[in-house]
Design a binder for these strands. Structure first.
Lengths: 374, 374
DNA sequence: ATGAAAGCGCTAACAT
DNA sequence: ATGTTAGCGCTTTCAT
């Protein structure tokens, strides 16, 4: 069952190929009667124009290639929705490729997309070298969802630099928190560790940095036999509080790197935690809950990075609004596609971060008090 | 910056277009010297074959279209990886489209994929009508990751029917659980509700079904002032245990539908929960932890459906192995693409489910005992 | 308003 | 082993 061609439609409608072509592209200069006949013939045959032939002949393909780093990336779905929204009622088809988290695959995927001669390209967090980015930029209009440093010739859309961090820190500080820990639950140390340390230091807060294992050690699960909610203390930057020895106040990694040279702060337990590398904060939250901590009564949790589960588990997050990122990216691309001046200087768009309060943060509990209203 | 063409390469290498074409396709019947010259010219020009032109001329495009329901679908990333793995060292490019969870968008995406005249199509959970599925099947080889009923002419790959359910139920029963609740945390009632009810009934277990709100009502968060881990009881199918009135034993929805006509079972609290509609079970887990329940000491949790966060939060899951699904789907497609007989009967592959024990399930606690080892 | 004709960049017979 | 030639299905002048 081969696909019907323009010619088949023309034959069936009793007109020439060119006429059918005009009708298919919605040209106004076709008589009503003919147009109806052509459309009827096309429908009867189940005709759909061959995008390959069309692209070849027209010199534009109507394709916008979208290169994602990884389908599992919590940003990916949102960005894609924003792109689709931005491209609505435009004769553009979004085609996705992904590097599946690997640089080599990203490169291949980029080439495959370029081979299709897309009208434009959106590179969303893909692990590309500058050379590859340049190659893409030289081939067609490109908007990158990345810091501009990586893609100087492409339009870029990204989070306000430091925006989410600032938002998270201000939020906690406004709630009265002064003893704040950063928990990096990622597999590899996040660059955000020192950004948060710096931002907190600006408030006179010297925040310890833990990984998930260290957090678990510091706040071990409530032992099976014991009463819940009463053992374990979050580490402090000072000497260990008078606690059972099981509660390691500071992890080796903490001592080894992040805390070197920091000022000790006393023995109060941490009242708030910033979760990195754990989009949505679910892992950090459950670790704390398992340790018998009530969130947010005993400890507030805010996660850097949005994810589906943030809503499900109720963790407050600061994040870049992914949809908005996608919308802005598509807007920049359309502007470039429609726009006159192909050599105008690159767009440098910035999107403000969003704090979504899901109740995992609350005012610091006054020292010595049993409870605090949220 | 136009793309260089075959002709440009030929000119630069001082040979004919056809020779370049042969070289680009790795034909063996080209002399070493010429081949090297052509390759050098191509590299210097940054030549990449135009996939559109190639597809048009060759009658095959090398494209495998992959239609996903939704990028956020926890299965999507895994399936895609499996597909990519299955297609490795084949001259095939995977191109993704998605319906973003909407039927209309899925249809559009399918059409856009078909317009590219793909060599094959993988439909992974997209919300397509049977008519659309038939249209796809009539156009090119299709493998659907769906129950065969929906796509009788396509090859299908799917989970063993009832497999994950059986696996979950057997797991809990083997651990001694008899008081089991099903919590459906999805926005819409899952069809799995009655499947689990049925499977549990086969073991003489009459399981109540709750939604997340009902679970919260039944196991309210530990009040700020109180000691953790001691209030709230999971509902039973029998009369409410002697508990504070805040603990609603059965939700209205529970009474209204799922429990109608079920046999009451007594007053023991539930010792295990199956989480539906909450891939990875994070929402159910945190709700229980917030209520002061220890998992798995007080209550075991198993989630139906794998998700990234399952690993992060430590919830045991039963799920279809997404990668394997993808691998099998690609294998079926390749078989169809290479294979001789285009009319052989459709593949009906089935993939066994996988239980990933992450420690959220444990043996039932002997009645009246304080604790149980995991 | 409609038709004729020339490609778009490539592949695949077919020559040589 | 290498060059020639006819399309693939469509768009797009250009005539009419």
């Amino acid at each position: 069952m081969p696909y019907p061609t323009l010619e088949d439609v023309a034959a069936r409608a009793g007109v020439s190929r060119a006429l059918v072509s005009l009708v298919m592209r919605g040209s106004p200069k076709v008589g009503e009667a003919r147009r109806a006949a052509v459309l009827a013939a096309a429908r009867e045959l189940g005709y759909r124009p061959n995008a390959m032939a069309r692209g070849l002949a027209a010199g534009r393909t109507g394709i916008v290639g979208v290169l994602l780093d990884d389908l599992g990336d919590p940003l990916a779905a949102g960005v894609h929705e924003g792109l689709a929204e931005g491209a609505r009622d435009r004769e553009l088809r979004l085609l996705l490729g992904t590097g599946r988290g690997e640089a080599a695959a990203a490169r291949t995927a980029l080439d495959e997309l370029l081979d299709l001669r897309p009208d434009g390209l959106v590179l969303a967090g893909a692990r590309l070298t500058s050379a590859d980015l340049d190659r893409a930029t030289a081939s067609c209009p490109v908007v990158a969802i990345l810091p501009p440093s990586r893609a100087d010739r492409a339009d870029t859309v990204r989070a306000e630099p430091g925006g989410p961090v600032h938002l998270a820190v201000e939020h906690l500080v406004a709630l009265g928190h002064r003893r704040i820990a950063v928990v990096d639950a990622g597999r590899r140390p996040s660059p955000l560790r020192r950004v948060y340390r710096g931002a907190l230091k600006a408030h006179g807060i010297d925040a310890p940095v833990l990984d998930l294992a260290a957090l678990r050690a510091a706040a071990p699960p409530t032992p099976p036999g014991g009463a819940a909610g009463d053992t374990g203390r979050l580490p402090t930057t000072g000497p260990a509080p008078s606690e059972p020895p099981s509660a390691e106040p500071v992890s080796a990694e903490l001592m080894g790197s992040e805390l070197m040279g920091s000022e000790l702060m006393g023995s109060e337990p941490v009242s708030a935690v910033v979760a990195l590398g754990d989009p949505g904060g679910a892992a950090v939250l459950t670790t704390l809950l398992r340790a018998g901590r009530r969130v947010p009564q005993d400890v507030s949790v805010i996660a850097h990075g949005e994810a589906r589960e943030a809503d499900a588990v109720g963790v407050t997050t600061v994040a870049v609004p992914a949809r908005e990122l996608g919308r802005r990216a598509m807007a920049a691309l359309l502007d470039r596609l429609d726009g006159g001046d192909p050599d105008r200087r690159p767009v440098r768009a910035t999107v403000p971060p969003v704090l979504t309060n899901r109740g995992s943060t609350g005012p610091v509990r006054p020292a010595g008090t049993g409870a605090t209203e949220r």
